[in-house]
């Protein structure tokens, strides 16, 4: 990532809609420290009642795959249909499985 000294470091923001649900990526912000990151995330991404809890993590701390990884990481799973449990009979009356 190119260094830009006029900006605070970048952080990624994850929001939990309600207790128990997964934290989902909402976007990113700039902040100089952890406290400021949480507050900026709150001010920018939860103004319209989007959630009840927040995670922020400095973008540099995220390890990500690259386009070059795609082939060997993800292509092999394309033809492994037996890994998805599509062949079981659903018990009658089950609605929430």
């Amino acid at each position: 990532m190119a260094e830009n000294n006029s900006q605070f470091p970048q952080w990624e923001v994850f929001i939990q809609v309600k207790n128990g649900s997964p934290y989902e990526h909402a976007g990113s912000i700039h902040a100089s420290d952890k406290k400021m990151a949480l507050q900026n995330a709150r001010d920018i991404y939860t103004r319209r009642n989007e959630g009840r809890a927040l995670w922020v993590v400095q973008t540099d701390n995220i390890v990500a795959t690259t386009r070059d990884d795609e082939e060997e990481f993800f292509d092999p799973s394309e033809d492994k249909i037996y890994r998805t449990p599509n062949f079981y009979k659903m018990p009658a009356g089950t609605t929430n499985l």
Binding site: Q7, F8, I29, H30, A31, Q39, N40, D43, I44
Partner: peptide, 8 residues
């Protein structure tokens, strides 16, 4: 001073 603070 920064966009985030503007919004805050």
């Amino acid at each position: 001073p920064i966009l985030e603070e503007d919004l805050a």
